[in-house]
Simulated assay, not measured.
Amino acid sequence: MSLKEPILKILIKQYAPLTMVEQKFGRYDLMFKTDDEGRPIMLFLGKKDSNGNIIGDRYARRLKIDDRGNTVKDHWEHKGKAT
């Protein structure tokens, strides 16, 4: 399952650095981890269970930035099931 435009709009924004952010998106629960600049780098997408864990899919962001700060590569990879 690849990420669609409405979810990518959420993941383009800047958030608080080095935090886990939880959001509701339609019928899904989103939980993502941010890097030291506040960019989402790991995403869990699915339904939250009673322990607060997301049961669904896990994605990781492939982000490469050159020496000048320009983005060279930026895409999300499906890493499998999240339990």
Score class of each variant (00 low, 15 high):
I54C: 13
D57G: 02
T19F: 02
E5V: 07
L18D: 15
S2P: 15
P17M: 05
K13F: 05
A60C: 08
R62I: 10
I12H: 12
F32A: 10
L30Q: 10
L3K: 03
Y59P: 09
D67F: 01
R39E: 15
F32W: 10
N51E: 15
E77T: 12
N53W: 12
D36W: 02
E77N: 14
R27A: 03
K24F: 05
R68D: 00
L11F: 03
T71A: 03
A82P: 12
I54F: 12
I65Q: 04
D67K: 09
D57V: 01
L8V: 09
L43N: 06
F25L: 10
R61A: 08
I55N: 12
I12D: 14
G38N: 08
K81T: 03
S2A: 04
I55Y: 06
S50H: 08
K64Y: 02
E37Y: 06
M1D: 00
F25C: 03
T34Y: 06
R39T: 15
D66M: 04
D57L: 08
D36M: 07
M1H: 01
I65L: 02
K9P: 09
M31P: 00
I41M: 13
F32D: 15
G26M: 09
L30W: 08
K47W: 04
N70R: 13
R61W: 03
R39S: 14
N53I: 03
L63Y: 04
K9H: 12
E77Q: 12
D49K: 07
L43V: 02
Y28E: 02
D66N: 15
G26V: 09
Y15T: 06
T71K: 06
E37F: 05
M31C: 12
L45Y: 11
P6K: 08
F44Y: 15
I41L: 07
K24A: 04
A60W: 02
R27E: 06
D35E: 11
L8A: 11
K48V: 07
K79A: 07
P6I: 07
K81E: 12
K9E: 15
R68K: 14
K64V: 12
G69V: 07
R39D: 14
M42H: 08
D67V: 00
K4C: 02
I10R: 04
A60K: 14
V72N: 00
Q14A: 03
T19Q: 15
K9A: 14
I10A: 00
T19C: 12
I65A: 01
M31D: 05
L45D: 00
N53E: 15
Y28V: 00
K79M: 14
K81Q: 07
P17R: 02
Q14R: 10
S50A: 07
W76V: 06
G46E: 00
D29W: 05
Y15K: 02
S50K: 09
I54Q: 13
L30K: 11
N51M: 13
L63A: 05
K73T: 14
I12M: 08
R58F: 15
